[in-house]
Design a protein around this nucleic acid. Structure first.
Length: 466
RNA sequence: UCCUUCUUAGCUCAGCCGGUUAGAGCACCUGACUGUUAAUCAGGGGGUCCUUGGUUCAAGUCCAAGAGAGGGAGCCA
């Protein structure tokens, strides 16, 4: 007797044979004579139907086989007599591995709201929706490594704990082993981090970029893919305190190469998700968002629009939305674009992904390469419909003097970045890279509305359950 | 952090201008039915109306504070 997954059985592997399978019951239907069990093992969206003739199984056993029960089934894989499935298992043996009390088990064979499922995140992998999302999430993660490996990038593991306070991407979580109630103090009365575990103040990383650049300056092409932590009090459907980020960094590449990579990369990932998770995406399309498939296809079949920040400002200024005063925030050169402005460009004006480049230097980070106009830097943001900014990146400032000046202007603690500056001192070269928010990608590909529903156990302000 | 909406059965929700014993669908339990597709049909059990305080003859309903959640904004990926 061979052991199979549901996925294998549904493609008729083992037809006519005795088969052996384990999984969880999704629903039970039936009458006095026969019961039909939908058995799912997570290998795919679909369940397989197990037919249990009541003369073969005790009433007591069948009463315990409820939604949520883990069972082991031995039987014969046969063509189905009913409609709705091509094959089914005629059961010979059913063994209960783990009961699920029908009166207490929170998941029912009905639709639940996303909010309710978030409260029972420990059980939601057992639903169709979250099974689909997490299979898609896996497929995208795997395709990311696959893509970079094919392109000659090396996977670089940058540190999770950082001693640098200068990553400049947001509020950080402190990492310490000091006694919170009674920390050692220095002569100035401040907490003495010299006595802490690392002998200095440390935090969880907000970006692997700076270390990624160090790797790229020897390995040429590298990428990071790891967890990132931001202690910002952000309460939105697009932010997490702990999320995963992909950050490629390329030596001897400029801003245009960076845009080319970003576009090719995202399209590759979407294409692989469509190829490898067709049932899951179709399910999400049919259940939650019937424009999902269309939107994914449209990204694949259109070139991303590439315009500069200054061109974007001109478009906004001449838009009827602006003239009618529909924007809440004013538009003029030098402002940081607001969500409403980005959405206008992507969803109304162009109706496809947009790459904006060459932003004013005053609204961007210190490490971005200064353009010849003295006003802008070689930055780029990739803006997507529905979710806004999915990628932020730039060509890096490789000229020592320019970088040093900028660091001073922006009051960044220069002494903490001596190692970063060294790469500009020794064998510096043009290089570029970007950061892609992994959950935002999953959000786009799954069509979900809230980022808390595309990560197994979301961490947000006031919530670190599970 | 700001704006806004919501919180009634296990889940999803109704509950009018404040009025007597708080309802429905699904789920659960019991029964019926020879192949069901979220099976169907009949019956049954199930309530801290988010918490605290207030107004009132009377509060699920009105007021205040608090807690939790959703949506939008800011910050960003």
């Amino acid at each position: 007797m061979n052991k199979y997954s549901v996925k294998q059985l549904l493609t008729h592997e083992g037809a006519g044979q005795n088969v052996h399978i384990k999984g969880w019951i999704r629903t039970k239907r039936g009458n006095k004579f026969v019961n039909f069990l939908a058995l799912n093992d997570g290998s795919c969206l679909k369940s397989i139907q197990v037919v249990a003739d009541n003369e073969r199984f005790s009433e007591d056993l069948m009463r315990k086989v409820n939604t949520g029960t883990a069972v082991e089934v031995k039987g014969t894989l046969v063509a189905s007599q009913g409609k709705g499935q091509s094959v089914e298992i005629q059961a010979q043996d059913i063994l209960i591995l783990g009961e699920a009390d029908a009166e207490e088990y929170p998941l029912q064979k009905k639709k639940h709201t996303m909010e309710f499922l978030r409260e029972i995140a420990h059980l939601r992998p057992r639903t169709n929706t979250f099974g689909a999302i997490f299979r898609i999430r896996h497929t995208l993660a795997f395709a990311i490594h696959e893509y970079f490996n094919q392109k000659g990038f090396f996977y670089l593991h940058t540190p999770i704990i950082t001693g640098s306070d200068a990553e400049g991407a947001g509020q950080m979580f402190r990492v310490t082993t000091l006694d919170a109630k009674n920390p050692p103090l220095n002569s100035e009365g401040a907490v003495d981090y010299n006595q802490d575990f690392f002998g200095k103040s440390t935090n969880l990383t907000v970006s692997g970029q700076l270390e990624g650049e160090l790797g790229a300056m020897g390995l040429g092409l590298v990428y990071t893919f790891g967890p990132t932590f931001r202690a910002e009090n952000s309460n939105t459907s697009r932010h997490l305190a702990e999320f995963w980020m992909i950050e490629p960094e390329m030596a001897f590449h400029d801003l245009k190469d960076n845009m080319d990579l970003a576009e090719d990369f995202i399209k590759y990932l979407i294409k692989k998700a469509l190829e490898r998770c067709p049932d899951d995406i179709q399910f999400l399309n049919d259940t939650y968002d019937n424009a999902l498939l269309e939107r994914l296809q449209s990204v694949l079949s259109n070139d991303f629009v590439r315009i500069t920040y200054s061109e974007a400002i001109d478009i906004l200024l001449s838009s009827s939305a602006y003239k009618k005063g529909k924007f809440e925030y004013n538009v003029k050169w030098g402002i940081d674009l607001q969500s409403e402005h980005e959405r206008y460009l992507v969803e109304k004006h162009f109706q496809k992904p947009v790459i904006l480049s060459d932003y004013p230097k005053d609204i961007k980070a210190f490490y971005m390469r200064q353009n010849n106009d003295g006003k802008t830097v070689a930055a780029m943001d990739v803006l997507f419909p529905q979710i806004g900014e999915i990628i932020g990146g730039s060509q890096r400032e490789e000229r020592y003097e320019n970088l040093a000046t900028r660091i001073k202007e922006m009051n960044i603690p220069e002494h903490e970045l001596w190692w970063y500056m060294d790469t500009r001192k020794y064998g510096t070269c043009p290089h570029a890279g970007f950061g892609l928010g992994f959950e935002r990608l999953v959000l786009f590909v799954s069509g979900m509305g809230n980022i808390r529903d595309v990560i197994p156990f979301p961490r947000t302000p006031q919530n670190a359950e599970f």
